[in-house]
Design a protein around this nucleic acid. Structure first.
Lengths: 135, 135
DNA sequence: CCCAAAACACGAAAGGCTTCGTAGTTCTTC
DNA sequence: GAAGAACTACGAAGCCTTTCGTGTTTTGGG
């Protein structure tokens, strides 16, 4: 595969199962299959080999990296959570918000059980910075 | 709030093709297969019967409604774009933002080429309303 | 050294997505 | 009223996802 392919195209549409595994990897950092399986078992009933197979497939797709130096391979998310957030957010914006990021923000603010005051303040601060800093 | 499967579960994960069709229906309103096909053909090369089949399948899934009173059936998106935005946004928030809507907002505001001043003002106004009005 | 436990690889089945081709039905126009 | 256009329905092929079961390899303890 091309080294410049920094963002695997598979990331454009991770399946729910893949996301579940990625979430574990983001939360716990690099993990063996067993560790992922145990973390996942807390919520869903999944066979060990199912998780193994997923990680193998995800490795094939470039969604995760694999360290094979030890017997129990260690898997690691290829993209940081931040990057995945960026990607998938712009996916969503393109898909259903007519490409308008601010429509997304409006919808999110309007729909959410309104964020806590602290969060609102944080957002406001970011707005200030945006209005001053750039433009 | 739960009348009777108001939101088809298929909406939780529309495929790219399905989204393409839904976007046409949102933009043009209720359409015949031919109309959808023509709108879609502007961007992609798709066979007429392919579009027909998609609409049939989407009808089966409950993604679209169908008026059969005329020979050329008329299809209509089951959910308004606004509702789809709501749904898919909260999907995204659950999936990669640890359930935090404000994290999404922060990411969107931070990543986007900063919105126009008018948009920023609009967002700020909504913030004000949130902080005062509801809780 | 041998065995059980732990780990990986592989394959396969069931179901979903995508894409059409073909066949049958209804409408329009001479 | 027959020919052809415009529609719908159906089925099938090829590929992807999800889920395991089996089989093989490695390893640590007795």
């Amino acid at each position: 595969m091309n080294q410049r392919d920094r963002v695997p195209t598979a990331f454009l549409r991770p399946t729910p199962s893949e996301l579940g595994i990625l979430r574990v990897l983001w939360r716990l950092g690099p993990c063996t299959v067993r560790e992922v399986h145990e973390a996942l078992s807390a919520e869903e009933k999944t066979g060990y080999t199912t998780v193994l197979k997923f990680l193998q497939i995800m490795h094939g797709k470039g969604l995760v990296e694999r360290d094979e130096t030890r017997r129990a391979h260690v898997y690691k998310a290829r993209l940081a959570q931040r990057q995945a957030q960026r990607l998938m957010t712009s996916q969503l914006v393109d898909g259903v918000f007519d490409g308008s990021m601010s429509k997304l923000v409006m919808a999110a603010l309007g729909d959410s059980g309104p964020a806590t005051p602290a969060e609102l303040a944080e957002i406001r601060e970011l707005l200030d910075k945006l209005e001053r800093g750039e433009t």
